[in-house]
């Protein structure tokens, strides 16, 4: 029974995409996933554009002090189980903006990231795979309830 539920979760990752101020390179690749060429709907992935319906938060771009709050707000509105996928160099580490005074050097300073999809910009195939892997990670996490990934983001922020 649980296996079936997990299977269903893996086969139906709905995403909400948050652009934290990217150059739009990654965003175009995210949108490319929806086109007939890549057609992520065949994996059950739907861009629902609403955290209340979403399972996966896909973040592109450099997180900064202004939009960290928005990101947290969105994450808070997503029902469990939920996952975060950081897409592109900027989301991973700040990318070429790493040294800027206002940049928070990656999404994982704010939210617990499950999957990092590197690239500038990553290929659509990579993004789709990242989303699918995120659901795997969720399943793993549910089997080991007190994993590292559950650590409070604020705490992790302090550690940095």
């Amino acid at each position: 029974m649980f296996n079936f539920v997990h299977k269903c979760r893996k086969k139906s990752p709905w995403i909400v995409h948050f652009d934290a101020g990217a150059c739009n390179g990654c965003d175009i690749e995210v949108l490319a996933c929806l086109t007939p060429v890549y057609d992520v709907e065949r994996f059950g992935i739907i861009n629902v554009g609403n955290p209340k319906h979403a399972d996966v938060l896909v973040v592109t771009g450099t997180c900064n002090r202004r939009n960290a709050r928005v990101l947290r707000n969105l994450y808070e509105q997503m029902p469990e189980p939920r996952a975060v996928v950081a897409v592109g160099a900027c989301a991973l580490s700040g990318g070429i903006f790493h040294e800027c005074y206002n940049v928070l050097k990656g999404v994982d300073g704010i939210l617990p990231v499950d999957v990092y999809v590197p690239g500038c910009a990553p290929r659509p195939e990579a993004i789709a795979e990242g989303v699918l892997m995120a659901m795997e990670r969720v399943e793993q996490r549910s089997r080991e309830p007190h994993s590292q990934m559950q650590a409070e983001p604020a705490e992790r922020e302090e550690r940095r």
Binding site: K52, V70, N73, Q77
Partner: peptide, 12 residues
């Protein structure tokens, strides 16, 4: 209970 969706700009 969660706030309504306001594009992440809600104040709780």
């Amino acid at each position: 209970v969660r706030d309504v969706y306001l594009c992440g700009e809600q104040v709780s």
